[in-house]
Design a protein around this nucleic acid. Structure first.
Lengths: 224, 224
DNA sequence: CCTATTTTGTTGTAAATACAACGTCATCTT
DNA sequence: AAGATGACGTTGTATTTACAACAAAATAGG
């Protein structure tokens, strides 16, 4: 339990709060933990959801299969990250994407109305949570815009460069591990896997990058 | 002035509030109005911004030009819509996109901290605004996910069908006007204008759609 | 340790796209 | 009214992609 409090403390939702505050807030918010096995669905597109969740352990994929089985991946969620907030609208719109556990995962969910309705007496940190929730969605928004940036590029190579550059920047290093395998990366960038694989091969040949499985290194060669 | 109160009343930010409440809140929030001529920049990528804005009149484009001059359009903003919320993070990240007036426009801006900091005495509707702001970002988030849906399609035709279908659904009619000209639509869907134009022509030939300038009609012919 | 399954790379081909160039028509400006 | 500018459609070509098929390598499960 203690380790999860640590995760919560570092999550966007509880930013700026102390451990003991979190513990009392968990009671106030009535957070509920739930385990999911690999491949299990945390949320299904079409469901109604009025909860906001934090991933405590594991990894989730936010994805979408169309009628013909083509899969597109919106995002990958790691420990401490908030998800589901965007669907939690008052009108009660259905969830747009599937959320699937990529490995054994532990999720803590909060009823949105419990978060948005301040309890006047017990919980002085409540308004902080509301602001944090706003910032969390705000940040998610930015991530989506950045993703648009990647896929707005016209060629597979440009998309790869855009994505890998951002990952390098985010990790503060030219060497980093991505949360996707090849097929998932292709689904994330909306390109064909085999074509992408070929392009990666060419980029390696040309000395731009090195990689092995999902570990990539950008080399000091001027790109473009 | 009165007409703008009406716009505000119908905006996501002030949903559920009455006119007289809005007037008192405007004082509390110190909203500032500003005019922009056609082509003028409301926000520039790279700027710091800590404000949330509502478009009172006109139309804005959220767009992005890369180093080589390729433009991509993230969204079109109409009267009553909220924008800029996503950049208003505490850490003070730079704005990611240009916001440009497509025609003469009137914008009202609020200091984010004024919104998030509740004034304990004067303004009982303040917490409502905070929730609304959350819902507004949340909804924007959904729009982005829906946009991802469109551009995740592989061919220009599929992207067009996806986008036009959604617009038809949104308007509750097979006939509707889009807020883009051809070049802008192409930049929005991340495709080549001429190729898109050709594809639209084919779709018209095949009896799927009709269009003239930016007025489209989806015909009752099974798509796919 | 062996086998089944998954992941990744490679290649060929048909299809789709980007890009450039150009003509027509509409709109704006003076 | 005339010229300039912008929007739209059309066409040809080189480039890029999607798709299918297959082999090699890695991984998972018993």
């Amino acid at each position: 339990m203690r380790e999860f409090i640590e995760v919560l403390k570092n999550s966007a939702l509880f930013e700026g709060t102390e451990e003991h505050e979190i513990i009392s807030m968990l009671k106030c918010l009535q957070g509920k933990g739930k385990k999911y096995g690999k491949g299990e669905y945390v949320l299904r597109a079409g469901e109604m959801s009025v909860s906001v969740s934090i991933l405590l352990k594991g990894r989730l994929l936010i994805q979408n299969d169309d009628y013909w089985g083509n899969r597109s991946i919106v995002n990958s969620i790691g420990p401490g990250e908030v998800f589901g907030e965007a669907y939690a609208v008052p009108a009660g719109k259905p969830v747009l994407n599937d959320v699937v556990a990529q490995e054994q995962s532990l999720v803590m969910s909060f009823d949105l109305s419990k978060i948005l309705t301040t309890c006047p007496t017990a919980c002085p940190f409540h308004s902080r949570i509301i602001k944090n929730l706003f910032f969390a969605v705000s940040k998610k928004n930015q991530l989506l815009v950045e993703k648009l940036w990647h896929i707005s590029r016209r060629t597979t190579r440009e998309k790869l460069i855009s994505y890998l550059s951002q990952e390098a920047a985010r990790n503060g290093s030219g060497s980093f591990t991505i949360p996707f395998n090849r097929q998932q990366l292709a689904d994330f960038l909306f390109v064909d896997r085999s074509a992408m694989s070929a392009e990666l091969g060419k980029m390696r040949e040309q000395g731009l990058i090195e990689f092995e499985r999902n570990k990539f290194t950008l080399l000091n060669k001027r790109v473009r």
